Amino acid sequence: MSRRKAGAKIDGWVILDKPVGLGSTPAVARVRRLFGAAKAGHGGTLDPLASGVLPIALGEATKTVPFVMDGRKAYRFTLRFGEARSTEDAEGEVTAVSDVRPDDAAIRAALPAFTGDIEQMPPAFSALKIDGKRAYDLARAGQAVDLKARPVRIDRLELVARPDPDHADFVVECGKGTYIRSLGRDLAQALGTVGHLSALRRTAAGPFGEAAAISLSKLEALGHIPALLGALAPVATALDDIPALALTEAQADRLRQGQPVLLTRDAPPSGALVRAESGSRLVALVRSDGAALRPVRVFNL
């Protein structure tokens, strides 16, 4: 029996402009195969019916995924008034209808209630787990989905266009764990009607924006590793918000071996998370105790 090929050591981020109709997991698999990478992950799921920024981590970049997951997200979405759907997007079955169509003034008046720190009920068709099972699997099987409301943060929610009475276009900036489908559902209900998302596009995820994103077709057209490597963002891009500290190569070697580095001066304050670098190379994420740096994540770059 032949052994599976381990894959190449490819380290960095691919900022994929995910197309509508492709799930996040298949998108990661296709990018991983293109690069022949040994390891891959992504910085936040996008529904198949959503498009836009899907940061894909290859190799050592997978160690920085939590920092992208925890980062700010930005979206554009279209809310379709008058129809509620089981999935809260265009994929589901119609579950309720309404003749009410709010005007622009009513919509704008409702938006402040959905900004700041709010409680949000996740959609039944979501990847959240209930007793070890995905909520969407239970929902598709017709079983009751018992989810709890949870706190999320929305920093910006703005009406930007009104193509017709049935549709309204919005931009939103939000924190980790926010479901835009739930936001659309709840906003429609607050306006005395029902609704679902007819379009959704993520425009930013952590430090990655759509201006830097590349389509799958363009990636596939590059075709070979030297050209593909030009589409990689450095591993450290995901850590741009974390202060950097320059170390000597001897200090870097201690961190690579999992050992602390004592600092006689200019030590970061106790508890601070710092990006340790030697030259231009990312070495580790370290936490300061006020006198020494202790490795939290070590990178093999």
Score class of each variant (00 low, 15 high):
L138T: 02
R32T: 14
T78C: 00
G12A: 03
S24R: 04
L16T: 08
P48S: 06
S126T: 02
G82N: 13
A127L: 13
S51Q: 10
R140N: 10
D17E: 11
D137C: 08
L34D: 13
A113C: 08
I56R: 12
P55A: 04
P123V: 00
L79R: 15
H42W: 13
P66C: 15
A141G: 12
V145W: 10
G36K: 05
D70C: 14
D104I: 07
S126G: 05
S126Q: 05
L128Y: 01
F125M: 04
I56F: 12
G82W: 10
S98N: 08
D104N: 12
A96Q: 10
K129Q: 09
K148F: 00
T95M: 13
F114A: 09
R76K: 10
F77I: 01
V68T: 02
G44Y: 12
T25M: 15
D11N: 14
A124M: 09
D103A: 05
P122V: 03
T78P: 03
L111C: 11
G52M: 06
S86G: 01
I10S: 08
D137F: 06
P26I: 10
A139C: 07
I10R: 02
R72E: 14
F81S: 13
A124I: 03
I107D: 14
A139S: 02
V14T: 12
L22T: 11
Q120P: 14
A110W: 03
L79E: 15
G92Q: 06
E93F: 09
E83C: 04
S51R: 13
F114I: 05
